[in-house]
Design a binder for these strands. Sequence first.
DNA 1: GGTGCCGGTTGATCTAAATCAAAGCAAGGC
DNA 2: GCCTTGCTTTGATTTAGATCAACCGGCACC
Lengths: 248, 248
Amino acid sequence: MLKEKASIIPHECGDCPIRHRAVCARCESDELEQLDQIKYYRSYESGQTLIWSGDTMDFVGSVVSGIATLTQTMEDGRTQMVGLLLPSDFVGRPGRASAAYDVVAVTDIVMCCFRKKPFEEMMARTPHIAQRLLEMTLDELDAAREWMLVLGRKTAREKIASLIAIIARRDATLSKNGTRGLLVFDLPLTREAMADYLGLTLETVSRQVSALKKDGVIELEGKRRVTVPDFNRLLEEAGDDSDGGMLI
Amino acid sequence: MLKEKASIIPHECGDCPIRHRAVCARCESDELEQLDQIKYYRSYESGQTLIWSGDTMDFVGSVVSGIATLTQTMEDGRTQMVGLLLPSDFVGRPGRASAAYDVVAVTDIVMCCFRKKPFEEMMARTPHIAQRLLEMTLDELDAAREWMLVLGRKTAREKIASLIAIIARRDATLSKNGTRGLLVFDLPLTREAMADYLGLTLETVSRQVSALKKDGVIELEGKRRVTVPDFNRLLEEAGDDSDGGMLI
DNA sequence: GGTGCCGGTTGATCTAAATCAAAGCAAGGC
DNA sequence: GCCTTGCTTTGATTTAGATCAACCGGCACC
């Protein structure tokens, strides 16, 4: 199978696939021109660590394509994923010198990077950027808090169902396939990465995925391709309010 | 013992105890005057629910004094605390109509509330407020992510030690008592609230608190008053990098 | 055509924390 | 004083998930 080339890098903000969702979403064309001055693209291969916790950060940026994870690790090796970075998500924190988490590419990835200093200066005089960043940060905070409920109170089966539901929902919004009811998508994560996300061991993840399959909650084609025949059933298994889970 | 009166409510921003830490921290005096137009104080008693998840919010605001919790509850009653609100913390989300979490007063509480609509309008034209709110939200996001590691990967004993360390650290920054080494403070939470924070049962919390006491990591005076003889020891028990835990 | 290796599955056993149950203790009301 | 109520502790038992261990299947590489 041919590997998709990661080298199709946009150079104009106009045809950027994340133009309307990233930090720059609210910018006018003159503001985009300013951003253009301080931006550069950079690509990473699957498995590569983009940023090590503790590194000094000289840039911030947006994920243009691909998927990365944000993880925290204890001295003895226990690791917990604390965020999943998808296209349009923002990486780095203005006003902070060093990275607080490891950022690892799960697939090949393209980043749109801004040199940190000039970006901070621009943010100070461009409310559109700060406003959008606030909005995105509030969304991430909500996601993190929802995840706290998953980590703290849900059973292994509910955790797996929750993760699949999140991926399904996100996939539906990104790929905008109008076909309701039947959802098909690929799990972007290995069993181990899923375990790190859910606070489980990879064996438990494997067992619970198999159990959900046996019970007809999901169907599997190979190890990664998932079909969800009944999204509300999945939400029930996740322990969520079934009405709260409307797509989009 | 006399109950502290919650009725000492500031009316001037000038002598407000959270003036330099809340959303309004960066505001100039003319901006404070504008805020003054749309603000009002409101107090709640210990145990009262300030906001129910799903309620429409007609205000946002800052905690002036007292402590509140942010909790999420599943249909079957399992609950997870997703935030602890201390003086200067912000409540509510600009741009969102309804509350996502329950907010419950743990002690008597005084809030400085802003009517939501005018606050949003003011935020749009006052970068100082949006900037400060962004900063605060980023801090909360970091705290939430640190908590994800606690919930997902730490043992019961480590969870308790982590919680005590957080409360100790916060108490040290708030009360600014320069005495290093020996920390004394009150646990503001019941065993049940601690359990909800940590994703444990209240029995496990009680057992682990006793165990930490038996092992000399903490000392107890009554049920609530805690002394930490050696903060680094506590951090070790929490599984944290001992160097990462410097006060302030 | 073997031989590693990576990601995944499956099974047996162990254990930390949950659950079930009872009782202690301080504060407040009558 | 006595009783209730809310919070906490302590004990016995159960269990969900971790841990330890073996093995499977595809795929790259010599």
